[in-house]
Design a protein around this nucleic acid. Structure first.
Lengths: 241, 241
DNA sequence: ATTGACCCTTACGTTACGTCATACATTATA
DNA sequence: TATAATGTATGACGTAACGTAAGGGTCAAT
């Protein structure tokens, strides 16, 4: 397929395809004598992947890394994307609810706090940044930051370990040393991974807050989330930014 | 409220607030002696509006115009935004379905055409661009384009007229001269307004295709959409880009 | 042989901030 | 109350993901 054909099929511009070629994100499998780009079916499948990731807010650079990674698993990626899309829909639903409430609010029918006016927008409200620092202190966080800072390609495994650490202490008093250490590591890890769109971590932030909410979240998102996190991070962060 | 406070409340960066001030999109109602920005409750409400529009993909320039327009009606805007969010959710649902099908497809459980692989992404598939040109020809379109080109602030009313024209011919043979003229105008108008995110026109494109589908769409989206279109366009396009 | 639709590359423009750098203001703490 | 820590302001340059010409080949059809 030639550029325009592809562009029309998927609903993007020709320039976009040029751009993706330029940055090496999607190089057509073949070209004609005259230098025309020819996209294979495999290319189209890859493009679908790219667009899913893009829809989820991933920067093209990261998408490239993902796809280039030899450990990339398409099936797995699809499942992850589905989960993220579902997460996104939740957020959208929250926004819709917010707006409906706002409509009533403006009519004077109900009351709303300022905070409520921004549900669905803000992920900063899940207090993972602030509360983590409040509860465990900058020192602990910074310390475990150092510990984790040296991670290389084995980040995935390390992630795995940290997750299980965390899981193993979740029945303890969150104020206990073990819990603090585990939570600090977990927090640091997320911080390190950083820079992913909200959907990736939506719901996760709350895990740090306290044991009860943590468990609630595990329930809410199920094992799937944990698995997803391990897999995702294993893949995403395999070589640091 | 000072910048950081606001930023944390709504989940955006301080820089973003600075930026919005720079471009005159959101100027704080007050400032301290030292030049610190102080945001009022009214400012916060406006910010909420801004973020809703932003979420829907509106460029900041357009948002500014919208808010600056004296005929801007907050209540109305909220309702519009809600409709657009609902539209966006539909699209998201389509994507989720697509990805679920793709997962099955990759397992070899079902078959998918290339087109089906991109449902939810592409709005180019609703053939409003291509089919309109195919059916009514570039000449017709260009002609009515000229007719419409002179519109000024009264675009809203003109829009109204066009809409009713269109409504009044929808029971006619779409091949009839009247229908063609009306449809051409409508199409041109959309074209002229142009540059809005897909959600704005989602579903509308199909209206041009033929009488049956046109009616179906009116049913599907209800009168609300038509009203929304008139209002929205009246507001949005009141002064040409 | 020429037209019109399509393709190429090069290159500068644009949007919405991110990211310093530098400097004054305010608040917390010793 | 001195001093550090934190918050804020104004530049100013950087970036991401294309948009938008400009200038010039290519290919199918007439």
């Amino acid at each position: 397929m030639k550029v325009k054909e592809v562009a029309e099929l998927v609903g993007i511009s020709v320039r976009t395809l040029h751009h993706y070629d330029e940055i090496g994100l999607l190089t057509p499998d073949d070209t004609t004598e005259a230098g025309y780009r020819l996209y294979s079916d495999e290319n189209i499948a890859t493009l679908q992947q790219i667009l899913f990731f893009r829809e989820l807010g991933f920067p093209l650079k990261k998408i490239k890394k993902l796809l280039d990674d030899p450990s990339f698993n398409r099936q797995q990626a699809f499942e992850m994307q589905r989960d993220m899309l579902l997460e996104k829909r939740k957020r959208l639903d929250a926004m819709i609810e917010t707006i409906e409430q706002t409509i009533q609010h403006e009519k004077g029918e109900i009351n709303m706090t300022n905070e409520e006016k921004f549900k669905g927008f803000d992920f900063s409200h899940n207090p993972y940044e602030q509360e983590a620092r409040d509860r465990w202190g900058d020192k602990a966080v910074d310390e475990s930051k150092k510990k984790v800072a040296g991670f290389g390609p084995e980040l995935g495994e390390e992630m795995n370990r940290i997750y299980f650490n965390l899981a193993s202490v979740r029945h303890l008093d969150p104020a206990s040393d073990e819990a603090q250490a585990a939570i600090g590591e977990w927090y640091t890890m997320l911080n390190k991974i950083g820079n992913y769109p909200p959907e990736v971590f939506a719901g996760l932030g709350k895990m740090y807050v306290d044991d009860e909410r943590f468990r609630k979240n595990i329930d809410q998102f199920g094992e799937g989330l944990a698995v997803f996190m391990r897999d995702a991070m294993g893949v995403y962060a395999s070589r640091n930014s």
